[in-house]
Amino acid sequence: MPGGSIVVGYTATDAGADAAALGARLARSLGAQLHLVLVLPSEGTRSPSVVPPERAYEDHIKAQAKQWLQDAIVRLPQEIARSGHVRIAESFAEGLIAAGEEFGARLIVVGAAGGGIFGRHRLGSVASELLHSSTIPVALAPVGTASTDDHVVSRVTVAVGTRPGADALLDEAVAVARDSGSGIRLVSLVPFDVPPGLDTGAIRLVGNAHADEALATVTAALPSGLEASSVDAPGDSVEDAVAHLSWLPGEVVLVGSSRLAQPRRLFLGSTAAKMLHELPVPMIVVPRTRGEGGNLS
């Protein structure tokens, strides 16, 4: 059933606006409730040399944070169930993960770091920490998401390799596609995700067999009326392949966590990181929940 909740890591910045916009798109598409969470640092994170702030000042900061959240909430689409929350934590990422667990979130959404190129990703410290510790899938909003008109998820692209963890990734992709009523496109990364030394013919055979198997799995799991397709990633490298793929407005990409990740936690691997450099659409990174390794490394 559609629903659940989505946590957005909000700040009163352009990145915060991008995260809120992507969160709204996902919430509308998935029928989920949206929680905007603004995390303030706890006293334990302050330097001992810093004079503790007066209570009145702390109250002012919290009041300002609540006002920022309220201003953001009124700008979101009115049909979305949404709320704002101020949380105190030692780090922004820690506060978001705690909020995600509190609200039973299916996704945590964050924006790009400042200084990024419009339409592209740039990982900041919060996103990096989330991508190495979260137990909940993390959605990354490209720079400028707030200025686009992509109000629903139009298609789910899944980057699949051959390493263990693909089942969890495909399950999540099917759930997102089913709840949003969108189709799935599988992009095989087998040519970039096999042991070195295999010849081109062997790589192609492995890739074709793996793509056919994944497509059959997804097709069988999707409701009637939703389509699944598979395409080969063109190019000689991950970056080249991603740069040559076509993208629909509102599309999202799902990738699996690295084989280095512990079960039920994230760890962004090198293949996913290379993809991120070229992606013009949001990326959702899914934790490994079964097997001994991740999907992308």
Score class of each variant (00 low, 15 high):
residue 79 E to Y: 08
residue 81 A to R: 05
residue 74 V to N: 11
residue 45 T to I: 13
residue 43 E to F: 06
residue 81 A to S: 05
residue 18 D to I: 06
residue 76 L to F: 06
residue 22 L to Y: 02
residue 86 V to K: 12
residue 55 R to K: 13
residue 72 A to F: 03
residue 34 L to H: 00
residue 37 V to I: 10
residue 45 T to F: 14
residue 72 A to T: 13
residue 43 E to L: 13
residue 76 L to T: 10
residue 47 S to Y: 08
residue 65 A to I: 08
residue 28 R to T: 03
residue 33 Q to R: 05
residue 73 I to K: 03
residue 42 S to A: 09
residue 17 A to Q: 06
residue 89 A to E: 04
residue 27 A to R: 01
residue 80 I to R: 04
residue 80 I to K: 08
residue 56 A to F: 07
residue 32 A to I: 03
residue 28 R to K: 04
residue 85 H to W: 05
residue 62 K to G: 08
residue 54 E to V: 13
residue 33 Q to P: 03
residue 41 P to N: 10
residue 80 I to A: 02
residue 70 Q to M: 04
residue 19 A to F: 07
residue 38 L to T: 06
residue 87 R to K: 15
residue 70 Q to V: 14
residue 51 V to G: 09
residue 54 E to H: 15
residue 63 A to Q: 15
residue 63 A to C: 10
residue 91 S to I: 05
residue 58 E to S: 09
residue 61 I to V: 13
residue 51 V to F: 08
residue 36 L to P: 00
residue 61 I to P: 10
residue 26 L to D: 00
residue 55 R to A: 11
residue 59 D to C: 05
residue 48 P to V: 14
residue 40 L to I: 15
residue 34 L to Q: 00
residue 88 I to K: 12
residue 74 V to A: 09
residue 67 Q to E: 09
residue 25 R to G: 00
residue 50 V to W: 11
residue 57 Y to Q: 14
residue 20 A to P: 03
residue 44 G to S: 13
residue 35 H to E: 11
